[in-house]
């Protein structure tokens, strides 16, 4: 049989086997490491600004003449966590439908971005908000006023979607 032995005896020489020089080498390495530049970001002071590809809190796009959403309910249907609730209403404008009620439960949302992907109007997009804190469970259910964000603030994401969406 063609078996090669690979014992500790063969692998290590005398100095490696008594450990101490190797331990000293290891300590030397960590000592040098102590003086290298630090990588920590001091968060509340140094805020991170994500790029357009970041999936933060989902928001509704607000144009000059009102929201884009036509309350088709696709986002609510596709949401795997059942976080979105939509109720539709009708108007006399060119866009005949608008959401009377649009709620996202942020305790349920898993930031998958399916709602954005499925939306035919590009009306719901993922924003850059990541520091979400709620003091009560009720506060975590965001209604339409909290969700509507002016289009100008969402340019990075819309640009990203235009480039990479099929």
């Amino acid at each position: 049989m063609n078996i090669e032995k690979n014992t500790e005896k063969q692998r290590l020489n005398f100095w490696e086997k008594i450990y101490l020089p190797e331990i000293a080498r290891g300590l030397g390495m960590t000592f040098v490491e102590m003086f290298k530049p630090k990588v920590t970001r001091q968060y509340p002071e140094e805020v991170w600004n994500p790029t357009g590809s970041y999936r933060g809190r989902p928001v509704l796009v607000l144009e000059e003449d009102g929201e884009r959403c036509v309350a088709c309910g696709l986002c609510s249907r596709v949401c795997p966590a059942l976080a979105i609730e939509v109720a539709a209403g009708e108007t006399e404008k060119t866009k005949e439908r608008y959401p009377i009620k649009f709620e996202i439960n942020m305790l349920r949302c898993i930031y998958c971005g399916f709602c954005e992907e499925v939306c035919p109007e590009e009306a719901i997009v993922m924003s850059k908000d990541y520091d979400l804190v709620f003091e009560k469970q009720e506060d975590a259910i965001l209604d339409k006023d909290q969700l509507l964000i002016p289009m100008a603030q969402l340019q990075d994401r819309l640009e990203f979607l235009r480039q990479y969406r099929r």
Binding site: T30, E33, M34, F35, K36, P37, K38, V39, T40, Q42
Partner: peptide, 10 residues
């Protein structure tokens, strides 16, 4: 502190 410095943290 020292553990942080060794791991390039603050």
């Amino acid at each position: 502190k020292i553990s942080a410095w060794i791991q390039n943290r603050i």
